[in-house]
Every structure is written in C-alpha cells, then in structure tokens.
Amino acid sequence: MALSKEALAEYIYDMVAKAQGKKNLKAMDVQKAVLKEHPDQNKNDIKFAIKDLIDGGRCVYTYFGGSYIEIPHEEGAAKKV
C-alpha cells in the first residue's frame, strides 16, 4: 500500500541512514527500493519526498564521481589527517 507523505519521507530517511558508509544511494536507487516494497507509490511523490528531505537539511546530495543522497556528515577531504 502506498505510504502517506510523512511515512514515505521517514521510510526514505531510514533507508539512507542504514546505507550510510556502506553503499552510496542514488535518487533512482531510492525510487526503485520504494517501488519494490510499495508498487503503487506515485513516482512523483518519491521525487518530492526526496526534495523535502533535502530542503529540510535532513539529507544532502553528495558528489563522489556520481551524485548520491546521504545523511549530512563531515567528509574525508575536509578532515586534517
């Protein structure tokens, strides 16, 4: 069953949080994963749920050769080691 707007955002946030550091997720990976569990979810809902998570600062886009969605964190290049 399709998720509500709020539940969809939490679902995506959890997915991104679980993948952090293990696998970089792209927007399309997120969409495909949502649709696997919730085949009737509207694709546009997913697109805008990601937008809301980014606009609210809970997730960020990152770029490491490809663009990914991650939880904000300090990146390796910014560290002084």
Binding site: V60, Y63, H73
Partner: peptide, 24 residues
Amino acid sequence: WKHGGIVGVLGYGSGIIGRYTDLP
C-alpha cells in the same frame, strides 16, 4: 587539491564543487 563532495547550497545537489588543499 582534494575533492569535496558534500558542500552545496540548501536544496541543490548541483552548482558547487568542493575543493580543499592538502597543505592547509
């Protein structure tokens, strides 16, 4: 130079490329 992949402006995943020197 080192690549920075996280910095940006709010809401966008484009338009900003992070750079840090390795000799700060």
